[in-house]
Write a protein that binds this DNA or RNA. Structure first.
Lengths: 171, 171
DNA sequence: GCAACTTAATTAAGTTACTGATACAGTTTG
DNA sequence: CAAACTGTATCAGTAACTTAATTAAGTTGC
């Protein structure tokens, strides 16, 4: 156990909760459900996945994933391909249109955070920059502890339900 | 526009997205919906609110709030009281049982983050601690920009949908 | 001080995203 | 190759939403 640190976990928790709320409130153009956006994000970040894998990572039933993927396929956001290594399985791929949605939402978040960062002092920005590696490592420690595959940093991963409950509300 | 900063907003965005996902995946004992937990959190943090206020802050319709509050009242988690200053309005108060749920969930988050922080180096913890005021100020800048009332730091506020889609999934 | 408008909450009916329980095809195992 | 297992799909039911309409209380203008 490490020596006493000045870091207030309670305060960190509050701040992260607040950012979560900010992300969730981000309005959306397109009317996609919470879990749907999470699936697109997972696929865009981690590449093609089986339905069962998605069910596990999104914490909904496999049945729900089947239904959602069917809907997303109709909308042209994902595609089903057979898994060459297992005749029972299906690999869900995100399409360019699906990836564009994920990218668009991330761009909105970046824009929003940029506005806020611009209003900080340069000392404050430097403090945040200095903390980023440690925060990233906390995330990494979490995913390895949980047994998830380590987060791939090529494209995306990580949105999850970062949206308004139904993303609707503002039609 | 401020001078060039070393802060990578893109990276900050990713890290915050990851924390959001961590929070959302936090399993729950009690089976409460996403929006329900958010309402409890808002009430526990900001005190009694009208139904219309809740509808605005949760981004669902007023009708949905009416139905949810009715259900929460049956379960003893909130109470309806008349608004002395407006005969049309109702003030929704969180009960001790309701507040206990919010506190319990926060405690889980604190515990989880504590574990992770324990595994950082003391230099990393210090870096996070040094960044906390700036991160808190970003949140504050956000809420004032949005026109929300400034976040009250007496009790809570901020959870929002920080939960598994239906919080069920793991019965 | 009352008619016209606005605002707060409720109610009712419909939609959607989920769950749970099967069913079934393909894979592994003895 | 039969038995057991795994991955996906289907179906029926439920819970949380939506929109639209209703009731009641407050506000405004003359």
């Amino acid at each position: 156990m490490p020596e006493i640190s000045e870091l207030s976990i309670a305060r960190l928790t509050r701040v992260l909760e607040d950012f979560t709320r900010m992300h969730i409130r981000l309005p959306a153009e397109r009317r996609l459900s919470f879990t749907t956006l999470s699936v697109l994000h997972t696929l865009a970040g981690g590449g093609p996945k089986r339905l069962t894998e998605l069910a596990g990572s999104e914490q909904v039933t496999q049945s729900a994933i089947t239904q959602m993927v069917t809907k997303l396929e109709r909308e042209g956001l994902v595609e089903r391909h057979p898994d060459p290594s297992d005749g029972r399985a299906v690999l869900v791929h995100v399409t360019a249109a699906g990836a564009a949605i994920v990218d668009g939402r991330r761009a909105e978040r970046v824009a929003r955070l940029s506005e806020l960062a611009d209003r900080l002092t340069s000392a404050e920005r430097a403090a945040v920059a200095a903390a980023l590696p440690a925060l990233a490592r906390m995330v990494e420690l979490h995913s390895t502890a949980i047994g998830d595959p380590p987060i791939e940093r090529g494209a995306g991963e990580s949105d999850s339900g970062t949206d308004t409950p139904r993303d609707s509300a503002r039609r």
